[in-house]
Amino acid sequence: MAGETLFLGGIFDIQDPFFGLPIYAWLWIFVLFLTLCTWLTFRYAVWTKYTVLWGLYDAFKAHSKAVFTFDIRLGAELLSEARAKIIADYSKYEYVLADVGAGFFAKFHNFLRRFLFYYPTAYLDSSELSSEEAILNKFGHVNMDVQIAKKLEGETDWIDIPSVSIGGIDTDLVLDADRWSIPKSLQHKEIEKFRDAWNDTYPDDRIESYMKLQRYMLNGKITQEDMARETPHVKSMIIIPWIRIDSAFPTVIEDNEQAGARRQQAKDDEQNIANAINKYIPYVLGAGIGFAFLILVFRFATVAMAGPKPV
């Protein structure tokens, strides 16, 4: 109102007769309602449909990898890299923080330390994770178990080549045929126990990932006896029957070649069946021509039998 002229002649200041609200207030209400509708529509009508694939977006946000795991029947699930590959959940361990002293300020200090403590700092040094990053990651819910596992196990033991890229997100495809990565499975619990025992015995050759465990099982570093004793329900190998392999990768490949031709044949047959009514054309033609001929014959015969017309 500092100017001499109202903005746009004051048209937006006109009050409605019912509630006494100016037009701009109604516009606010409309736009805010539109915003709410937009949010609800995208959230529940679109985004919900991607539920099983949300992990891809989370991986994109966290600049991390995504992992598709498959069971033996090709049931797929999208998991975080930590959940899919690492045996232990480091956040579940109890971390004991020594008190720095008694007294009010010391107690407050202790409380603050506990409040701000983020467990990866117990494994990663300050060059790998600064205090500021730790606080940000703690409250940003950034999981750092993969970095921890890589450090504990050794970077060289870690397979870090992504299988594929999905929309710019590095994604691994992992077959978990024996339910190792399912936290509630018996196999997982046995593996977790075995890992703890192994790491206590061989602190310089730790096992943190399923990949390393699998490798040690195959190359004999973990013996069959160890497995039978410690992990009786865990199978290192699964048998895939030949019928499945032959169906998936046939040696007779003419079927592939002929499949398109068969499909075409079916389409042609469909057309032929649709055109079946035209098969009556010769019969209709024959009968019609015969009937017309008969009419002509009868007419000629009638004329011939009638004799000459009287003059």
Binding site: V174, A177, D178, Q214, K235, M237, R244
Partner: peptide, 9 residues
């Protein structure tokens, strides 16, 4: 049938 490692990339 062919044996397959339980956990494979």
């Amino acid at each position: 049938g062919l044996p397959i490692p339980s956990f494979s990339m």
